[in-house]
Amino acid sequence: MDHLTALENRSIHILREAYSQLGNLCMLWSIGKDSTVMLYLARKAFFGHVPFPLVHIDTGYKIEEMIAYRDTLAREWKLDMIFGMNEQALQNKETFPDGKISHVACCKLLKTEALAHTLSGAWPRYRMNHETGTYQVDRNTEPFTGVIVGVRADEEGSRSKERYFSPRDRNNDWDVGNQPPEFWNQYKTDFAPGTHVRVHPLLDWTELDIWEYIERESIPMVSLYFDDGCGKRYRSLGCAPCTAPIESRAKTVREVVDELRTGKLASIAERSGRAQDKEDGGGLEELRKQGYM
C-alpha cells in the first residue's frame, strides 16, 4: 500500500471512530488546505456524506476569497456550515490591526476565545440555511463535545506531541505531560462529563503529503495558494494583516508540489509567514494549551 493511501486509510478510520464513539461532534474548517483535505476525507469516510457540522471561526480579518470559497463549497457539497466570531472584541476594536494589542493577544481574542465560546454554544452560532443560501443564528446552543481538527505533527514542536484523540478539560486545557496512552487502534473515547475531546485525523501527514494528495484526488483549493501572475502566493492562510504571501511562481498544484519537494521551499518552515509564531519562544505552545488549534 503506497504512502498516501496508507495515510488516507488511517485518517478515515479515525474519522469513523470519532463519529461512532463521540456525541455532539463537529469538524473545524479553517478553509486552509489541511482542513479542506480533512473535509474531503470525511466525504470519503462517509461515502459522500458529511454527517456532522463544519465550524469556521471567522476573525473578521480573513482574506475575502476564503469566505467566498467556504460558502461556494458549503453549497456544492451540502455541508452543515456554521461560523462563529468574537463580535465584542471586533466592536471594541480590541485587535492587533487596530493597534491596541499584540499579535498573540489578538489571536487569543479572535480565535481562541471565539472558538471556545462557539463550541460551548455561549456565543451565537451562524448556520447556513441551504434554502436561502444565507446564514442565520442557530437555535441549537448545545456544546460540541467532540471536535475534529486538522493539525499535523510536522507543523511545529507542540503539535508533534498530540494524540489522535486528545482530551481537554472543562477549561479547554491540554495537559501535555499527562496524556492517555494510544495504541493498537484504540483511542480514548470515554470521557467524564464536562470534558471534551479533540480528534486529529491528519496528525501523520506532512505538508508535502497534503499537496500530493490534493493533486492525486483533484481536491478544489482556494485560489490564494497559487500565483495569479504577480509572483506571489500564500503558503499558509490566516488573517490578512498577519499572513504574508511568499515569493513564488507556482500556478498549479503540480508546481506547488515540485516547489515543496525539490524547489526553494524544501527547507523553509511552513509557518514562516505567520507572525504569531515568532513573538516569543513558546507563544504558540501557550496558545495551544488554552485551546488554540
Partner: peptide, 14 residues
C-alpha cells in the same frame, strides 16, 4: 465492524 451507515440524504438508500 466499525459502524453501520444509512445516510438517507440525497436519496441514498445504501
Amino acid at each position: 465492524v466499525q459502524d453501520v451507515y444509512k445516510f438517507t440524504s440525497g436519496g441514498d438508500d445504501r
